[in-house]
Design a binder for these strands. Structure first.
Lengths: 132, 132
DNA sequence: ACAGTGTACTATCTCGCATGGTACACTTTT
DNA sequence: AAAAGTGTACCATGCGAGATAGTACACTGT
């Protein structure tokens, strides 16, 4: 399904969240699709079921997936996704912080800005294959 | 000197590094300035001396400061700062990742791009008061 | 000599994360 | 009715990074 990076600073359950979120938003997992069960996914990526469950719980909280007891977990309607304002602020802070680090590394403003712009534009239509 | 955020995910020594790096690059701490001693800084921000030392060691490794045994630690010449290519890649990855998270939050590409651009440009001449 | 400095090392504590294991309620399939 | 598969909820344990506490040593300036 996807690959984990055990050497990453990100915890496993966060990586699972990010991967699934990406697959959902790019349409690789479309609305209504049944996700692998907690136990199944835990086997295929060889982590503990609890870790997968933690990821699923958070994804459900954010509206990316929904759960029917005894049946399974499914990809939600994208309209259900709640843009948590607090979460948005955090991401903005992280982005701002990364850019500052570019500056404080010795790059001057235009260099840093060009690098950032290129990174951003390279994401265009590469990732955003949204089927609204 | 500066304020720590104990609730941050960033470890303390990383926060110290970031703060000092910022103060150096903005010129708030100018070349040759003597930094507080390990013990002194550890007192003013109420952390362990070891933690401060860890930060200083890393800053020295990256060329932001230099040390004279028995004397103290000083802000280095900005020309000494080495742009570690591996480090640069990491920062680029983080920046790219943050932007992706904006996209996967439900924002469409132009929205996300505008937000990012604004964040970046707001850093202009606000942070970059470099005296080269 | 003395105070201040960087440096090194070890031991201990804490916390988040991941794991291992068990249990229960529910739904679908047989 | 039974079995298999599902989500969910615990709890105990282990692990590792980070932070702390404490000690010690070598160096420099006064």
């Amino acid at each position: 399904m996807f690959q984990l990076d055990l050497k990453s600073r990100k915890s496993i359950y966060e990586q699972v969240i990010d991967h699934l979120k990406e697959m959902i938003m790019t349409g690789e997992l479309s609305e209504g699709t049944k996700l692998p069960s907690v136990r199944e996914l835990s086997k295929t990526i060889t982590v503990n079921p609890n870790t997968v469950q933690k990821a699923y719980r958070e994804l459900e909280r954010q509206g990316y997936i929904y759960t029917t007891n005894g049946v399974g977990t499914f990809v939600a309607d994208k309209g259900e996704i709640s843009v948590d304002p607090a979460e948005l602020e955090k991401v903005k802070l992280r982005l701002s912080d990364s850019f500052k680090q570019l500056l404080y590394m010795g790059l001057d403003f235009t260099e840093a800005r060009d690098i950032a712009m290129e990174l951003i534009d390279s994401k265009f239509s590469q990732e955003v294959i949204r089927n609204d």
